[in-house]
Write a protein that binds this DNA or RNA. Sequence first.
DNA 1: ACTTTCTTCAACCCAACGGTTGAACATCGA
DNA 2: TCGATGTTCAACCGTTGGGTTGAAGAAAGT
Lengths: 116, 116
Amino acid sequence: MDDTQLDRAFAALSDPTRRDIVARLCDGDATVGEVAAPYAMSVQAVSKHLTVLEEAGLLRRTTVGRQRRCSVEPAALAALTGWIDRHRRMLERRFRSLDLLLARTAPDPPHEEEPS
Amino acid sequence: MDDTQLDRAFAALSDPTRRDIVARLCDGDATVGEVAAPYAMSVQAVSKHLTVLEEAGLLRRTTVGRQRRCSVEPAALAALTGWIDRHRRMLERRFRSLDLLLARTAPDPPHEEEPS
DNA sequence: ACTTTCTTCAACCCAACGGTTGAACATCGA
DNA sequence: TCGATGTTCAACCGTTGGGTTGAAGAAAGT
């Protein structure tokens, strides 16, 4: 997943309606109308949300008759956790080596980073 | 982490500059000036980005003398992967039970969902 | 063929966003 | 005390985003 797709995917999930849509679709596919039903907004608005999710790679819409069936794309979710976890691990490694340093040099040294 | 914090955190990471800032800070704390240095934009703009990250709970700025030291807040990253992974697991469970169904009923049944 | 149903397209509105510049504020060094 | 440094505040500008309404398109039912 390239950078602008990451942009789009994070942006897509920053909207509560869209997160809710994804959450519900994780539990089972649905048509546009079914997705839209619970919300107090126009079907057009929901259709736009679905487009945003689709362009972010988080969703697939497949045409069946006159309806369109929406299903979540697991790979996109994986890409997101991928980015975050990669950096979480960097952080943890840093903390571990800091703990190690503190334990080794024992007393007095409160400071961290950039020995400048 | 409440819903609006999730909104903010996902939104914060949807900007490439802010993702880059987070990435770099995962590798070590830095002052605002140090964070801003690599970018072709004003220090004020970067300061705004840092505010966005801070309000999203992804960052902490602590004052030391006339500078402000920025450090990543690991818990916020964890909250994000938490949300995503929760739903990824729902998806996987769904797929597994679908596989099971297909394997059990063997021939012919191509359809899924909402037996209506 | 006609009408209804499901979905999208298009134009518009207002609020929020990412950037700018200029000024203010607080701390450090001389 | 005074100037330089690091950071933020405030006002502004152009673009994007989430919503609306109205109309169009395409498949289904009769």
